[in-house]
Design a protein around this nucleic acid. Structure first.
Lengths: 263, 263
DNA sequence: TAGTGGTCTAGACCACCGC
DNA sequence: CGGTGGTCTAGACCACTAT
């Protein structure tokens, strides 16, 4: 278990751990072959059948064994390299990465984050109306000042305790936002259901002291440290579709994520 | 300038904006062809020669015009899709994304961030010694408790004002860290120079109120909101190489970044 | 239906690594 | 030196989109 070992045991037993692995490819399936292979490879890594540090075996043999062409095998491997699960080195081979690289940063929904953490999130909609866009919002959404926008104010709780106060703006024409559905799912899920495909988002994460109003709402003391996030999300055409300003109780929430170093 | 337009003007003049563009490929260069093409494509987008919304023209024609095979052209295009500059849609084509997608989140160095923002960062090294690893540090770095580590405490300033207090731990055997060099460059640059190739990092960003000591050091009032970041960085073999705990003045600093939505 | 990107093949040569 | 990944080619067929 020494963490100092490097790349010994090139030919040690169990090195070509890929042999005992059985990969089943279904050529009649609509799922691309490279994707089928990538998923099975990822599953093998996930459950430890392919241990960290193990070499994958060279791509030529691999493709022969799988009955695939080398480019197809490479496409599968590359997708796992992009996820940070594998590392390729010329003249050496492809290895499983040691660390528990799991989630890279993604455009996350607080609701989804809490739900997947088993936190049973609930939402109280404090405000849901259509108003003329204030200047700041109009600028962020790239619309005319005074154009109709939907403003949402929500209080997100887990186990009955408030975690965050969320304020969001969307062009009113984009989407219907019934209060009832907002209380049982996430805004991003509703946008997705409405066919809005998100492409990117610009975020800024900061901190500040709670105002009296925020303190009351979030059950903190006035002046308590709060985490803040301001975000503009864009769809595939590059059009801004959502602008949000959120505050989180720093005592209950932090942003956690994994980064990959760009090569 | 209406931000509401979608994908009109399929056949409008100036649509095949790629025609007037001149791409020069050097087959004798060691730089891969797909990379040469990708760079010139990115430059054309950057300077607006390829305007947002423009279609690229189909890949078959494109490869013929460039004298490249289609997979090579696709590799170039794919790299820009991954960067968020282009969007591909089946049956439609490849378009330049509207928004000013620029920097995705990367494993950033505060020093480099400030420097590239023209903030003239300076560093005061408050502590630079070798100590037995405390339990928390040993756990993060995957070494034995009590093993020798280098501990760094630095104050980062811009324009003479303190911005952040940085505390970092590294295995002592990894790297020499002369105080003088630490005051004129970033820790990550020094690690890179020493041949340490970073692969990924796990970060947690939160907030809390300043202690009396932090307040004095950062020239804030006691209880002021501070941004906090805790980070463990890993090299290509998955070994933890650095553990850091940083606090930033929320009044002077925020984390800004662009995210791409995973497809 | 015509045009687009998505997938896949079966080769080839080169650059880098470790021995 | 042999083995590895990195790059590149010239085709092919399919799935999806728009008209």
């Amino acid at each position: 278990m020494s963490p100092v070992h490097r790349t010994e045991q090139r030919t040690a037993p169990g090195d070509r751990a890929l042999d005992p692995l059985s990969f089943t490819l279904d050529r009649t399936s609509p799922v691309p072959l490279y994707y089928q292979f990538a998923q099975q490879l990822e599953a093998a890594i996930e459950r430890g059948t392919l241990a960290p540090g193990n070499l994958l075996g060279n791509e030529v043999d691999l493709s022969a064994r799988l009955g695939l062409s080398r480019p197809t095998v490479r496409q599968a491997i590359q997708s796992l390299v992009d996820k940070g699960l594998l590392v390729r080195r010329r003249g050496v081979g492809t290895q499983v990465v040691h660390s528990k690289v799991r989630r890279p940063l993604e455009l996350s929904s607080l609701y989804d984050d809490l739900e997947s953490a088993g936190q049973e999130p609930t939402t109280r909609v404090l405000r849901n109306e259509r108003i003329p866009a204030p200047a700041e919002v109009a600028a962020a959404l790239g619309i005319a000042e005074g154009a109709e926008v939907t403003v949402l104010e929500r209080l997100r709780c887990t186990h009955g305790r408030p975690v965050a106060f969320l304020c969001n703006y969307l062009s009113a024409s984009l989407l219907e936002l019934p209060t009832q559905r907002l209380e049982s799912t996430s805004l991003y899920r509703m946008m997705r259901s409405a066919g809005i495909v998100l492409h990117s988002a610009r975020q800024s994460i900061g901190a500040r002291s709670a105002t009296a109003g925020e303190a009351t709402l979030l059950e903190e003391k006035e002046g308590a440290a709060l985490l803040t996030m301001v975000r503009t999300a864009y769809d595939v055409t590059g059009r801004p579709v959502e602008y949000g300003s959120h505050v989180y109780r720093a005592s209950l929430y932090a942003f956690e994520f994994q980064l990959l170093v760009r090569p």
